[in-house]
Design a protein around this nucleic acid. Structure first.
Lengths: 99, 99
DNA sequence: AAAATAGTCAGGTATTGACCTAAGTAACTG
DNA sequence: CAGTTACTTAGGTCAATACCTGACTATTTT
């Protein structure tokens, strides 16, 4: 796996926006279509789908198109990767020189 | 706790840059001064200290100045907050409608 | 087949973010 | 007390990002 850090960076980057955080939260409750996801936001659709693109490129989310509907779902393995990155460093610090 | 999401967003935002990720990794190994932290990076000091500022505002890191040396250390509670945010949503998804 | 629905593509603007140099200030050190 | 060290402050550039509108394609639905 070449440059693990780049992937991690992209995950955190994807999570650094309120709209995208809300989408992740929404998706944790179950998969949804673009328009279902977009509905709560006061934002033009193209702006919104751009956010979905960022989430998908980060690997936090994947999508599948059936007919004219694209459905998004969470990728828990990617979320786990971010968790582990943080956990690893926190544990090192807590066990080492400590606070 | 007023607007939890804003704080989470700021944490992820702070982690969305390679320099700052590397600083967090370095600090997981023990606290360090500004110049110790800056040394590996081919970057002007003011640019670098700006990154430290972002990390500190996010709460991932705190600093203390003694004499002319400012020392940085990790804040594991903040890292834990980010971990928990992710874990919570991942767990919901894994238990619910699932993949 | 016409109209509605669900997204997508192609631009354009405006703010934010990552960098820089130059010039400080404050605390050691010789 | 003069010089060096360890940052800090001020201001400026350039690219990336979050938005927008308008027009388009592909699928239902009627």
């Amino acid at each position: 796996m070449p440059n693990q850090e780049l992937a991690i960076e992209r995950i955190f980057q994807a999570l650094s926006d309120p709209t995208r955080l809300a989408v992740v939260t929404r998706l944790s409750d179950g998969s949804a279509s673009v328009s279902e996801l977009a509905e709560p936001f006061d934002m033009a659709l193209p702006s919104f789908t751009q956010h979905l693109g960022v989430l998908e490129k980060s690997g936090l989310v994947r999508s599948e198109k059936k007919g004219r509907v694209r459905t998004y779902r969470l990728r828990p393995d990617t979320m786990k990767a971010a968790e582990s990155w943080l956990e690893r460093r926190r544990a090192l610090w807590e066990m080492g020189a400590g606070p």
